[in-house]
Each structure stands twice: as C-alpha cells, then as structure tokens.
Amino acid sequence: MERKYTILAILLIVLALGLVILPKKNELKETDPKVLLSEAVQKSRYLTVDQVTHRIIENDPTLMLIDLRKADQYKTFALPGSLNIPPDSLLSKTNMELFSQPGKDKVLYGNADLTAEKAWLLCSRYALKRIYIMKGGMNEWFTTIVSEKPVSGTPSTADLDLVSFRKAARMFLIGTGETASTSAAVTVKEKVQVIRKAPKAAAGGGC
C-alpha cells in the first residue's frame, strides 16, 4: 500500500519537475525560412501605387500605411493617414503591437523599394500577417499620381480610365487637377488612431 503511494508521489514530482526543466520556448513565433522563401518570391506582397491611392480615396478602414522614410521627408509630404516609422524602430514593442493588429493591411513604403523590402522581410520573419509593399515607394507614387506619366501609343479604355482616375486622385489629394510641380507640399495628415489589440474576452465569472 505504502509503496504504491510512494510511486505515485514520485511520478507527480517527476511530472512537475519536467515542467520546470523543459526548455523555455521562444515566445516569439518565427516563420520557417523555407516558408519565408516561398513567400518572398511571390509577387502578391506588392500593391501598385494606383491600388493604394484607390484605397486611400475610398477611406478603406483596413488600410494601414507605414511610411519608412526619414522624419523630415515625412513632414514635407506624406500620404494621408500614414504612420511614420523609421526603420531603426521597426521592431519596437509598440510597433510590433501595431503590426499584429488583425484585420488591417499593413502597407510599407520608403522612397524606393529597398527599405520596404527589408522591412517586409523582417516583419514576415516575425510571422506577422497581411504585410504589403507599395511597389516603387514614394518616388513611384509621385511619378504616377502627381506628375502624370504620358500614356504611350493609342490608349485603351482601361488606360484612359486610369488616367482619369489619377487625375481625380490628384484633385483629391493635392487639390489641383493639373500636373503639379513636385514642390506641392501637401499634407493631409490625419490623426491616426492606434487601436491596441484588445485583450481577448475571457469567459464570464466563475462560481
């Protein structure tokens, strides 16, 4: 009788000790390099400047623009509703919380693609979801939307639609339908509301 209980007691202690000495797991989820590679070669992470502009004008609530340029550049001109996150503070705790917000498409952009690509890779490695890159960055945005690119050849209907859309967008964002000079420093910066991830609702009262 006594022996049976001794064995049970030892079993319990071993089970509890097991918990203590089990190696602590890395709290942060990391994407498997192979999965990361297959994600990195896909083009689906890119959004064109037209797509992004469209969503800005529509006031898409799922859109979250993240401006990776320097603060002074951001001050001079920024897309409406964008957040300025310098690359060096990309992985700070608050920003990670920001990135892990569910139901938001996080669109990264810098002056060109390079910074955004690097930031995308880092975010994806931390298993953050719905991270996109605005293809071409702010330079591309300016050349496409602000200083309109001439459409070569005989324009198709789709091309014409695009041209008129860009014109409308210019109207909307900069206030002039004409091809503006790059000095058009317009900031329609809105106060961006940061929605912190609400703690998951636990089940109601106990006894």
């Binding site: 089940a203 109601g204 006894c207």
Partner: peptide, 10 residues
C-alpha cells in the same frame, strides 16, 4: 473546453 472553472454558488 469552456475556458472556465467549475462552480456551484454562481
């Protein structure tokens, strides 16, 4: 299963 403990006085 339910995310809560057992009870009685509740």
């Amino acid at each position: 299963i339910s995310g809560r403990g057992l009870g009685a006085s509740g």
